[in-house]
Nucleic acid binder design. Structure first.
Lengths: 228, 228
DNA sequence: ACCTGAACACCGTTCAAGT
DNA sequence: ACCTGAACACCGTTCAAGT
């Protein structure tokens, strides 16, 4: 008689007493994401966490894509910061930093955030705060939407780049060598060569983020000044 | 005796006379990506395109990740535009637009571009041109790297958002309804509600891209003005 | 109605065996 | 050295059958 091993040993197969719920599934997925990473999260591991067969999940969610959708919204819960509503730049900084902070701090969150379009109950307050701040800037209605997209792309794009860069750093101990040593490129690509060291140097994410964000503000202010 | 069907019918199993090469594999992968999309591209379909077994590919590439790497560089071939080297803004506009245009025009290119860090022979000239333009702007060496990252994130992030939005548009005929009709949100999230229509309206990608890019320029100029 | 058990149609990857 | 054939350890998803 073989001893139980692996997940089975840690999770004795006590029969569930209650029915499964969608919230429970999403919470289990979030737990696995945080504990074991995105690659370890799938229908079978989520189901096992709930002491249930994978097929049982399909009673409560449509498919894997919907689970990702619900999970992403779950990860952004209570992310919207308290904003004063006086200076729109101050508000935008708070929102953008909270957003980025959350995306980076929840393991592999950026790998789910990619093609997300649905607006869940936890994303809504964040969007609302952002639109509020931007519409207080003096931008026209049309420009508010453009600025929103530019900010959203920047925050998500930056967080994605930051997360994958941090991931790489943790795997490749001893620093990243972005530019591979191709000596024949030295004269063909002088500009690239000149900045090769700076590219593989450790990044100051806070400073980079602030640079991009303040740049967006500058663009917004210029647009305001240019319109009647 | 069953008739051949599907791919087998279009690609009679004539024996290959020559050996496989890495370039050939990457070209086949690019062909499948363009013809059938990213979800249809895998080791087996790439191998079948070359009238070979999937296992044979591993003599010439390490794994799927390396194929993606090589493929992405392949897709960016000859993307670097001719730049005059006089006005850095003009150059950056040319580079950024060519970059975005290429990312969007090659089917599913943005799905591969995500966690790309390796610099292939086709990416190098693009990077070189970008660093050249930015260092002519008057930015300090340190700021050039920050500006480069901000631009890269913006271009890739924008192209990703544009591609997935276009993809959604082609699937959901009749326009996108970003904000689901949740009447109870109307008073809780007034700012979100006010812009809900604008969010689901068709997007002018060129205008949005120009907005973000010019905003980055404004930020760069402000940074230049602030430094000695 | 909800879940199980078993299956299906996939994936990436490995490896002994052929040529 | 290069490729085949077959297998392994996975995936998401479906469906009849149990309760």
């Amino acid at each position: 008689m073989a001893l139980p091993f692996g997940a089975a040993a840690r999770r004795p197969a006590r029969k569930r007493t209650s029915f499964l719920t969608q919230d429970e599934i999403v919470a289990a997925a979030a737990l696995i994401l945080e504990r074991d990473g995105y690659d370890a999260m799938n229908m079978r591991t989520v189901a096992a966490e709930l002491r249930v067969q994978a097929a049982a999940l399909y009673r409560h969610i449509q498919n894997r894509a919907e689970l990702n959708d619900l999970l992403f919204d779950y990860l952004m819960a209570d992310c919207a910061p308290h904003i004063r509503g006086i200076d729109w730049r101050e508000d935008m900084r708070l929102i953008a930093n909270a957003w980025r902070q959350r995306l980076v701090s929840r393991r592999d969150a950026t790998r789910i955030a990619l093609s997300q379009v649905s607006i869940g109950p936890n994303i809504a307050p964040l969007m609302d705060a952002t639109f509020g701040a931007l519409s207080r800037s003096g931008l026209s209605e049309n420009d508010v939407v453009e600025a929103y997209h530019a900010c959203l792309i920047f925050v998500h794009g930056f967080a994605s780049a930051e997360a994958s860069h941090r991931d790489l750093l943790s795997k490749l101990q001893g620093g990243i060598r972005i530019a591979p040593p191709r000596p024949e490129w030295a004269e063909a690509y002088p500009n690239l060569s000149r900045f090769a060291d700076a590219l593989s140097a450790p990044l100051n994410f806070d400073a980079h983020f602030a640079f991009g964000l303040e740049a967006l503000f500058a663009g917004i202010e210029r647009r305001i000044a240019a319109s009647p």
